[in-house]
Simulated assay, not measured.
Amino acid sequence: MNDNQLHARIFRTADEWYADVDDELDPQPDNPLWWGSYETQPAALEAACARLAALRQAS
């Protein structure tokens, strides 16, 4: 992973919560670095934070 700024986004559509992680070079939601769908907002937030931490450790 490079030194780009990563951004987590949590949002809801219908009955699912989504989380994705993008970098500043390609912040469009059509091609995130990572994404997942969850039943609750806290689960989506926890997953996004865990993914950010994992990406940070891998750099």
Rank of each mutant, 00 (worst) to 15 (best):
E16S: 13
L25G: 05
Y38Q: 08
L52R: 00
R56T: 10
A50G: 10
M1Y: 03
A43D: 11
P29D: 14
A53W: 03
W35I: 07
E24H: 08
L55F: 07
D15V: 14
D26Y: 04
W34G: 01
E24Y: 07
R56P: 02
D20R: 02
I10K: 13
L25S: 09
D15F: 13
Q28H: 15
W35Y: 11
A48H: 00
A14W: 12
L6K: 05
F11W: 15
Q41R: 03
A58N: 06
Q57A: 13
Y18N: 12
R56G: 00
D22V: 10
A50Y: 01
Q57Y: 12
P42W: 00
D23I: 02
P42H: 04
E16I: 10
Q5T: 10
P42S: 10
I10N: 04
A14Y: 03
M1D: 07
A44R: 06
P42D: 01
W17L: 03
N2T: 09
P27T: 00
L55E: 06
Q5L: 05
W35E: 10
C49D: 09
W34A: 05
D3C: 13
M1L: 10
W17N: 04
L55C: 12
L6H: 00
W35Q: 11
R9N: 15
Q41P: 06
A8L: 10
N4F: 05
E39V: 03
A19C: 12
A8M: 13
D3K: 15
R56S: 05
D22F: 02
N4T: 05
L52H: 02
A47N: 13
A54Y: 06
G36A: 07
S59G: 15
A43H: 10
D20P: 00
L33K: 03
P29K: 00
P29H: 04
T13L: 14
E39N: 05
D23L: 06
P42V: 00
L25A: 03
D22Y: 08
A8G: 12
S59K: 09
A54Q: 11
R9S: 12
A19E: 08
W17E: 05
H7D: 01
A43R: 07
L45H: 05
A43S: 13
A50C: 10
N31Q: 14
E46F: 01
P32I: 00
M1C: 08
L55W: 10
V21Q: 11
A58L: 03
M1I: 06
W35V: 01
A8D: 08
D20T: 02
E24L: 12
R51H: 14
T40Q: 01
D3F: 14
A48T: 01
P32S: 08
L25N: 13
D30G: 12
N31I: 05
L6C: 08
P29F: 06
A58D: 14
R12Y: 04
A53G: 04
P27I: 07
D20K: 02
H7S: 08
R12H: 06
G36V: 01
F11T: 12
C49Q: 13
A58H: 13
